[in-house]
């Protein structure tokens, strides 16, 4: 008998009465001002939320962020933004992204209750870019802010193979005496632009 057959038969050996699977709907939290709540949540986890009327406003705001103006290598898979000097499709291996300072990446939607943004790696040749850069900037449509994780999953489908991640703030650790340190292995800063008009 294969290990699989042995495990399954061991699991099936004790027939258990069927327990009901609860529905997804529930008395879940809602916020009057979802974008405002998102900004508050994001600040509490070490990130920064900035509102921008359009792409030009993002470009202008980027020029005021010291971590971006000091950057030598910027990768932005958002063509309409017109910034960046590293083109992801031309990079052969993710290891070549090691010295990229900033990535500016689209996020699909944001979650008000916890400051998370859903990033789908579909358009990214190397998903490592999200974790390897020193500073991460996400651009999300301002009307794409959901209340809670329940609403988040209602929007998500996993029909195709792929990779997606909720990112809530910069990489962090508190493994040394519970002292919070920002910038563990991944990005040291995390900025989210909520865009009024679609990019």
């Amino acid at each position: 008998m294969t290990s699989k057959a042995q495990i399954l038969s061991a699991v099936r050996r004790t027939p258990l009465p069927l327990r009901e699977l609860p529905p997804h709907a529930g008395p879940w939290l809602t916020f009057a001002d979802r974008a405002g709540q998102f900004a508050t949540s994001l600040a509490s986890v070490g990130g920064v939320c900035l509102a921008a009327r359009d792409v030009a406003a993002i470009r202008a705001a980027l020029e005021t962020l010291p971590q971006i103006t000091a950057a030598k290598k910027v990768c932005s898979p958002l063509p309409e933004l017109g910034v960046g000097n590293v083109s992801l499709p031309d990079v052969a291996t993710p290891h070549d992204l090691e010295d990229v300072d900033v990535a500016i990446v689209p996020g699909e939607f944001a979650v008000a209750e916890n400051g998370a943004v859903w990033v789908n790696a579909r358009g990214l040749k190397h998903r490592a870019i999200l974790f390897l850069v020193q500073h991460l900037v996400l651009v999300v449509r301002g009307d794409a802010v959901v209340n809670t994780m329940h609403e988040a999953y209602a929007r998500l489908e996993f029909a195709e193979p792929g990779f997606g991640v909720f990112i809530s703030g910069p990489s962090k650790t508190a493994d040394i005496e519970q002292s919070l340190v920002i910038g563990a292995h991944g990005p040291r800063s995390h900025t989210v632009f909520l865009l009024e008009a679609a990019p």
Binding site: V45, F158, E160, G162, F166, S168
Partner: peptide
């Protein structure tokens, strides 16, 4: 995911919740 990080470290969610499909 609403319960895990809140219970573990008092964060609203972990920084990264990565979904691998393939």
């Amino acid at each position: 995911l609403r319960l895990l990080a809140r219970s573990a470290t008092g964060q609203p969610i972990t920084t990264y919740s990565s979904h691998f499909h393939g």
